[in-house]
């Protein structure tokens, strides 16, 4: 039986009916139409579908959409403001921190989540905190550099 949920995604409120087994990743892409969240492995191994749930980084393929009722979600679409990229996105562009781009939205949010909590994170911590996000192209070096260089924008 479908259930009605009310979710705030990137500042906008959505009221939607969902089957309980609907995963948040598919809910975002197919029902809400926010396709910036990518679905890679679907079993919680790759991190491509990462989003912020109540400000915390989670894999949206490991969350039932029904459970997000009355909660706040930020997807990669929620970072840029009025056509201007967020500093973490700028850093990814600047450092060529992507090739095929499939993992990028998850990587950007993982970097954003880390720097929001600790803008002083060094390379070791950046590597540890991005360990849940896999990239098959870049070898990670540019991604780690991009996140490190974005840190200054998070320091108040």
């Amino acid at each position: 039986m479908k259930q009605l949920i009310q979710v705030k995604i990137n500042g906008r409120i959505y009221r939607e009916e969902v089957e309980p087994r609907m995963l948040l990743s598919f809910f975002l892409r197919e029902q809400v139409g926010l396709t910036g969240t990518h679905v890679g492995c679907v079993v919680g191994e790759c991190g491509a579908c990462s989003v912020l749930l109540e400000g915390r980084l989670v894999k949206s393929c490991l969350v039932l959409a029904v459970r997000t009722d009355q909660k706040k979600i930020t997807t990669v679409e929620g970072l840029a403001r009025e056509g201007t990229l967020h500093p973490i996105q700028e850093a990814f562009v600047e450092h060529y921190a992507l090739q095929c781009g499939f993992c990028t939205s998850g990587m950007v949010l993982a970097g954003h989540s880390l720097l929001t909590r600790n803008p002083d994170a060094g390379e070791e911590e950046i590597r540890q905190k991005l360990a849940g996000n896999l990239c098959m192209c870049t070898g990670y070096t540019q991604i780690v550099k991009a996140v490190g260089s974005a840190a200054k924008a998070y320091k108040k």
Binding site: G47, L53, R56, L57, V58, L62, S113, A131, G132
Partner: peptide
Amino acid sequence: ADVQVRNL
């Protein structure tokens, strides 16, 4: 596991 799993 990883940050995402530890968050939930």
